[in-house]
Design a protein around this nucleic acid. Structure first.
Lengths: 150, 150
DNA sequence: TATTGTTATACTCTATAACTATA
DNA sequence: TATAGTTATAGAGTATAACAATA
């Protein structure tokens, strides 16, 4: 007699669920979704936030420094900086020591904007902390850093 | 006297380094890079591996079940299944109960292929475990799952 | 000779709309 | 009326090559 063609009732995903990479990616995509929703009022995406935060904490940072810090390619940063400049959140000034480079700075409007964005980001992080008993959020960050640093 | 234009010596990334989402994304991208390198001999990318693994563990799984399990959109799965079929790793058979659906199955070649892929994946996971003292890998997986499940 | 910033461009990934066959 | 699979297509995100200005 012929074998039946099998069909699937409940999908077994146990193998993937035990992989660090699979879980890290699922968390990353899930948190990006939340971020985009929460920052919708500011029309701000995660990478733009990262770029603006580095400019906030490092006034005069250059494009190449931003690329190195965030693992971006220079051609992909150009358009983003240009868009942020068009929104009058940042401005470029000649680098004081290196004539090739341009330092990126927040405008006054950019500072107000980032105060709002940072508040939303902090709220998000507090909400994440609620899902993890007390010290576990710090543990998670520490373990993640062990995997990609150095 | 005019203020000097500031420039940046060492980039301060401390704010981002404390965000769960930033770290999860860095880990995800870093592990994807490693995965692609290790699987280069099989020309296998992470999402293709996930799809094949679900087919391996769930013979006859449908496209919509794959999409739901992996958070993919149906139109983006079509081409991937087609490519895997062209490589003769999977085959589609009519679903035994639902005339609209097609169940996806591994071919014999697909089973041999996945035996190799699973070995490489297990090696990768063991190497990750080396970076985390003993039980910490399990802790990391558990904490990540708390953030995106339910 | 190497680096910074830039343009142009191509490739991948992802998302939406619309269609068909079936439930 | 809703769902499974598919096609076509558009939008991000990301990659390389090549160039001008400066180090």
């Amino acid at each position: 007699m012929p074998k039946e063609t099998p069909s699937v009732d409940k999908v077994d995903i146990s193998y993937l669920e035990n992989l660090v990479g699979y879980n890290a990616r699922r968390v990353s995509l899930s948190l990006i979704d939340v971020f985009v929703q929460r920052m919708a009022e500011l029309s701000l995406h995660p990478v733009e936030f990262s770029v603006l935060m580095l400019i906030t904490r490092n006034p005069g940072i250059t494009s190449s420094q931003l690329c190195a810090a965030l693992g971006m390619k220079a051609p992909n940063l150009v358009g983003m900086i240009g868009a942020l400049e068009k929104r009058e959140l940042v401005m470029r000034k000649p680098h004081p020591q290196d004539g090739r480079a341009m330092g990126v700075h927040l405008t006054p409007a950019g500072r107000k904007f980032m105060a709002r964005a940072e508040k939303i980001s902090d709220d998000m992080e507090a909400q994440i902390a609620q899902k993890l008993p007390s010290t576990e959020r710090a543990t998670l960050v520490r373990l993640l850093q062990k995997l990609y640093l150095d």
